[in-house]
Computed example of a mutant assay.
Amino acid sequence: MKNTFLILFLLYFLTGCKEQKLSHKETVSRYYNAFDSGDYNEIKATINDSVTMISGDYVIPYNHDSFYDFFKWDSIFKPSYKIVELDEKNNDIIVTIAQDNVRNEFLKNNPLVFKVKVSFTLEKISKLEELEYIDVNWEVWNQEKDSLVSWIKNNHHDLDGFVEDMTMKGSKDYLKAIELYASNKYNLQ
């Protein structure tokens, strides 16, 4: 009888220790914390098999493989993600993020602060829709980007097209372009 009680107690204990279902807020926090720490496996655990990112007129569908390519592109810029605010509205989460990275710093908008509406399917993230950017100076952003693109086109044609290349190679070329441009600017002073 003691053995039966012990076995039943252990079974109850083990089944009670299963991972608890995360709330939507906890899932979003886990997602951005994983981006911040560079842990793709943790990100993968929070996203659905298909994820759609919406930024303005751009609608980009991802599966796990293509999302990993996006993650690699982003990681080259050495990003830091901080959750500023997290609200639940109906079944969605509205999150405000402050993103620091090398690219944003060059474009003189660091941190880049923006709001995202996060939607879920089967308790996993299925859509991330950018809602608004907060205090972003797009005029300065575009001036810096255009100066960099123009200078690269005239001086390092082999890197031309880096802005549109959303691959790991594209982000490495972007960093190289920033370094070359900054070095040239420094040498002219």
Rank of each mutant, 00 (worst) to 15 (best):
Leu131Ala: 02
Tyr174His: 11
Val59Leu: 06
Phe162Thr: 01
Tyr68Asn: 12
Asn90His: 10
Lys185Ala: 06
Asn109Lys: 08
Ile152Asn: 00
Val118Ser: 02
Leu107Gly: 01
Glu129Met: 07
Pro111Ser: 01
Val95Tyr: 05
Asn187Gly: 00
Ile83Met: 05
Leu180Gly: 07
Asn137Arg: 04
His64Asp: 11
Ile83Val: 13
Lys127Pro: 05
Leu86Phe: 03
Pro79Cys: 09
Pro61Ala: 05
Phe114Arg: 10
Lys127Thr: 08
Gln189Ile: 11
Phe70Leu: 14
Glu144Tyr: 08
Gln99Ala: 13
Ser119Thr: 11
Tyr133His: 14
Val102Pro: 07
Phe71Gln: 06
Leu175Arg: 05
Lys153Gln: 11
Ser150Ala: 13
Val163Gly: 00
Ser75Gln: 14
Thr96Cys: 09
Val113Met: 09
Lys115Leu: 01
Glu85Thr: 12
Asp146Asn: 15
Leu112Asn: 13
Pro61Asp: 08
Lys82Trp: 01
Lys115Arg: 12
Val163Tyr: 13
Ser150Asn: 14
Asp100Gln: 12
Ile134Leu: 13
Tyr68Ser: 09
Met168Val: 00
Met166Ile: 08
Asn110Thr: 08
Met166Gly: 12
Thr96Trp: 04
Asn154Ile: 01
Asn109Gln: 06
Pro61Trp: 02
Ser80His: 12
Phe67Glu: 08
Asn155Ala: 04
Phe120Thr: 09
Ser147Gln: 12
Lys115Ser: 14
Asn187Arg: 12
Lys169Val: 12
Val149Cys: 08
Trp73Ile: 06
Ser150Pro: 00
Ser119Ile: 04
Leu112Ala: 09
Ile125Trp: 01
Ser147Lys: 14
Glu85Arg: 15
His156Asp: 10
Thr96Asn: 07
Asn155Trp: 02
Thr96Asp: 06
Pro61Val: 06
Lys153Thr: 11
Ser147Glu: 12
Gln143Met: 08
Leu175Gly: 03
Pro79Thr: 09
Glu85Lys: 15
Lys117Thr: 14
Lys115Thr: 11
Ala177Pro: 04
Asp158Asn: 15
Ser66Gly: 09
Ile152Ser: 01
Lys78Gln: 15
Pro111Tyr: 01
Leu159Val: 00
Leu128Phe: 01
Glu139Trp: 07
Tyr81Asn: 10
Leu112Trp: 07
Glu88Thr: 13
Ile93Gln: 04
